[in-house]
Design a protein around this nucleic acid. Sequence first.
DNA 1: CCAATGACTAAGCGCTTGCTTAGTGTGTCA
DNA 2: TGACACACTAAGCAAGCGCTTAGTCATTGG
Lengths: 205, 205
Amino acid sequence: MLSTMTTDSANGRDRSASTRERLLEAAVEAFATSGFAGTTTRDIASRAGMSPAAVYVHHATKEDLLFEISRRGHRSAVEIIEKASQSATDPVDRVRAMVTEFSRWHAVNSRVGRIVQYEFDALTPEHRAEIAEYRRAIEALTREALEAGVATGSMTVSDTKGTALALLSLSIDLVRWYNPSGATTPDEMAALHGDLALRMVGATA
Amino acid sequence: MLSTMTTDSANGRDRSASTRERLLEAAVEAFATSGFAGTTTRDIASRAGMSPAAVYVHHATKEDLLFEISRRGHRSAVEIIEKASQSATDPVDRVRAMVTEFSRWHAVNSRVGRIVQYEFDALTPEHRAEIAEYRRAIEALTREALEAGVATGSMTVSDTKGTALALLSLSIDLVRWYNPSGATTPDEMAALHGDLALRMVGATA
DNA sequence: CCAATGACTAAGCGCTTGCTTAGTGTGTCA
DNA sequence: TGACACACTAAGCAAGCGCTTAGTCATTGG
C-alpha cells in the first residue's frame, strides 16, 4: 500500500524534502516580486513560515536558491521548446508549435519566467555559464527551424538570427506585464503569438 | 558673447547643474548594471567621483534619482513615438515608422531603456502613477494606429490590443540583450523590426 | 529504552545600507 | 575687504543585511 502520509505525520526525509521545496516556492514568490537583490533571506523564511536560519538548513546561500530556480526554469523551458520542435516535420508547423508553446510556458509560469529572464546577471560566473548554455540551445533551435523553412521555400526570412530573436521576444516579454489573474488566458496568448510568428516568417497561413 | 566656460572655471550655478547631471549619469550606469535594489548610493557617488554625501546635496533620495531617470526616459520615448505617429498619414507607413523609431530608441538608449522597462516596480506609488500614464499613452497610440489600418482595410488584425503589445515587445525586449558594442547597429535593428511589424499586421509590404 | 540523528530556532556577529550632521573651503557680492 | 552663500566632505548613526553558532526537541534504529 502506498504511503498515506498526512502533512503532520511525515518522516524525517519527506519532511526535509518538502520543506526544501516550500523554501524554493517562497523564494520564487519573493524574487519575482522584489527581484533577487531586493529580497532578504528573512523575507523568504517568513513566506515559508519559518525562522531566518531555517533557509540555511536546506540551501547553502541565497544565490544557490536563485540558481536552483533558474536551472529548473530553464530546463523546463528548453524541454518545452524541444518537444514542440520535434512535434512537426513541416517547418511552418514546427515554428508555430515552438512559438505557441514557448509563449504558453511564459504565461503559465510567469513568476518563474520573470526570474529566469531578469535575474541572469545576479548569478555567480560559474552558474551563469551553465545557464547560458540553455539559452544558447533555445536560440539555436529557433534559428534552425527558420533555416529549414527558408531551405524548403515555405518561409521568406532574410535575417534568420534577428528574426529568431524577435520571435523569442514575443514570448519572453510576456513575463514583464502578463497578469495571471487578468482576462487573457495562456491559451489565447499562445494562439495569438503562434499566428503572429507565421506572419513574421512570411509563411502562408 | 556666449559663455566660454571651461570645466574648471564654472560659476556656482553651472557647477551645481552639471554635478547634478553627472550624478544622474552615474546613477544610470549603476542602475542599468546592478538594478535599483542592487545599487548603493556609495556606488553612484564614486562613479561620479564624489563623496557619498554629495548625492544628497543634489537629490533628495535614491528613489528620486530613479524617478528622474525614469521620467526623462519615458518622456523621451513618448516623444519619439508621437513624432513617428504624426510623420505619416497612411496607417501602414505610420505603423512602420512607430515600430522603427521605437526600436531605434531602445537600441540607442539601451541603458536608460533597461531602467525604464525593468525598474517600474521600484518607484513609490505616487511616482509609479505618473509613469503609468506615459506607458498608457504609448500603448494607446500603437493600438489606434492598428485600428486605423483595419478601418481602411490596409491591415488584417483581429486582436488589436494583443497585437499592439506584441509590436511593443519587439522593441522593449531589445534592452534585455542588446549590446551597444556588438555587431548589430540600431539602424539595422530598427529596419528589421519595421519590416516584421508590417508582416505582423497583415499589410502588403 | 536509550543514544544518535537531524530538522529547526533564538540570538547574534560583522558588515553594509540609506541618509544625516557638523564642518571646511571657495567663489560672489556689498 | 569681509560677510555671506553654497558646493562638498569626514564621520557616523540607526537599521537591516547574509550568514553562523549553540542549542532544543522530536523521530528513529539498535
